[in-house]
């Protein structure tokens, strides 16, 4: 019984310690993001990596998500004779929910995992230590550029996802299923408000913080806990990064959604 309580207590303390470390990491990342010197070149490189290099996967997933949405909505709405609502249905679902969430999940899988692996390798090969011994702040070189790039890229990628998704829905609804083009776009303008668009923007910005926070933290502190060191620790950190970021995105999406229904 005593050992059970001890294990429980140790687990609880480890959890709180981890939470505290993550909190301090986020605070430092935000603090160093807004204080000079600014490393614009590094931030630009990460914008290229997180943003531009993710365009392909965002266009693909956006297009097919819009197509699937239109297909499913058409057969459901047809039962009620409300096919005209297919445009607003596709647009509203994409702009409010699916666009920001899917974009964040895709960037987590493609960019977040890569960031964790890169930082993890930098940690185990003493590259991060070398910033410290050169009297430099490693946050400025390896963390802040990812934060800045994520803040810039997530809303833009979400906008691309939404646009391509609406276009995909148009192809299915109008070209395949025969819904009128004017109906598809006209009703969309009536039912999708600026508030919906802003909600999507807020969501994508908060997901940018979550993904860059989790992926940078997991890589930056590879081997700091009992998960070992070396290649195995990097592999574990990369998995933990993707799983934690993905679950956090969905939990935070529900939390935000419930406040802004």
């Amino acid at each position: 019984m005593t050992s059970f309580v001890r294990v429980l207590g140790r687990g609880g303390l480890d959890f709180l310690r981890g939470l505290g470390k993550r909190g301090i990491f986020l605070f430092n990342a935000i603090h160093y993001s807004v204080t000079p010197p600014y490393k614009w070149r590094l931030a630009w490189r990460q914008v290229w990596f997180i943003g531009y290099m993710s365009l392909g996967v965002i266009v693909m997933t956006g297009g097919f998500t819009g197509m699937v949405l239109a297909l499913q909505l058409y057969y459901t709405l047809k039962k009620f004779g409300a096919e005209s609502m297919i445009g607003p249905g596709v647009a509203s679902s994409l702009v409010r929910e699916l666009g920001p969430v899917f974009t964040a999940l895709m960037v987590t899988a493609r960019g977040g995992s890569a960031i964790t692996a890169e930082l993890g390798i930098m940690r185990i090969s003493e590259q991060i230590d070398s910033y410290y011994v050169m009297a430099l702040n490693p946050y400025k070189y390896v963390v802040v550029p990812n934060f800045v790039a994520a803040i810039v890229c997530f809303p833009l990628l979400t906008a691309v996802f939404n646009t391509v998704g609406i276009w995909g829905g148009y192809m299915v609804a109008v070209k395949l299923l025969g819904v009128g083009s004017g109906v598809y776009f006209g009703e969309m303008q009536t039912f999708v408000s600026a508030r919906d668009i802003w909600l999507g923007v807020y969501k994508s910005l908060s997901f940018a913080v979550i993904v860059s926070w989790v992926s940078c933290y997991e890589g930056f502190y590879v081997g700091a806990d009992s998960s070992g060191f070396g290649a195995k620790a990097v592999s574990r950190a990369t998995t933990a990064s993707v799983v934690t970021a993905s679950v956090s995105i969905l939990v935070w999406d529900y939390t935000l959604g419930s406040f802004f229904v």
Binding site: I121, S125, E126, Q127, S130, Y132, V133, M134, L136
Partner: peptide
Amino acid sequence: RSSIGVLFQSGALFDSLNVYENVSFPLREC
């Protein structure tokens, strides 16, 4: 630390920089 140079066991050269950029890094940044 500014008065110390370190040769790490692994070398700790920055993977994303070439030799010129690595060697010139302390001159530019420090």
